[in-house]
Amino acid sequence: MEYFIHLAILVSIYAILGLSLNLVVGYTGLLSISQAAFYGIGAYTTAILLTRFDLNFFVSILAGIVITGVCSLLIGFVLSRFKEDYYALGSFGFNIIVYSIFLNWQSLTQGPLGIPGITRPTIFGFSLSENIAFLGLAVVGGILIFFFCEFIAKSSFGRVLKAIREDEQAIEIFGYKTLYYKLAIFVLSAMIASVAGSFFASYITFIDPSTFTLNESIFILSIIILGGLANLKGSVLGALFLILLPEALRFVGFPTDIAAQMRQLVYGVLLVVLMLYRPQGLLGEYKL
């Protein structure tokens, strides 16, 4: 049972990451491969604030959102100069730079040793140290974020984003400053990813840089591509599928270290097959 709760928490966290990235890649058509960087900034903010300053978990989420917002604004500003595949490459680069900072700014992040002993959240004096209680928090957080993303997608702001995706020049002629829209959604998406990072740090109680590599960004990208671009339910479905499938492989009898590689093999092959036969994913409305 404990094991299923663990998986359900992971699915919730990755669903949040998928939802956040879908706003940028699916709705706005910007191929960003740097979500793990913002996920990491959120996780590190929570880890540092909880272990060194003994702050409340929810305060650390807010702090993470603010810090990630500032970082993503700077990064987004540079990225907004690029288009299509150069955009992807630039975002790649920022992921690597942020990863290097996690790894090398040792006085802050303790480098490759990571930060242990992160505490679980407490609500009104009640500690969520039981996994089932934490699952409640993660699911509630996930649902709130889902509806928030849906609200954005259906708002007039969301319609402009889709218009940018379809034809940026045309919407510019109508007088929309697309730069501000692209920056706004990029920052918003990074902030949501930061919340997922805070959840992750507090749930696992230990973080190190190896969680926030480029591979993680590719993994999050495959979640939304599998589920479907510009479809929020698809992102949840994609997270469910890609987290559970490798676990199923483990039950078939593969040893743990092979199972870890198997996860990569599966989503690598999946990306190729989807691009070949179904570029819009399972439920998607938009093709890259």
């Binding site: 191929l31 491969i33 299509e84 595949d85 992807a88 591979n215 590719i218 990208l221 495959s222 591509i225 990569q264 093999l265 989503y267 690598g268 092959v269 999946l270 990306l271 190729v272 691009m275 070949l276 570029p279 093709k287 890259l288």
Partner: peptide, 15 residues
Amino acid sequence: SNMVLLVASLGVFTA
């Protein structure tokens, strides 16, 4: 599109 090819090549790489 170029982005589809880029994502596919990313898949090839990972696999």
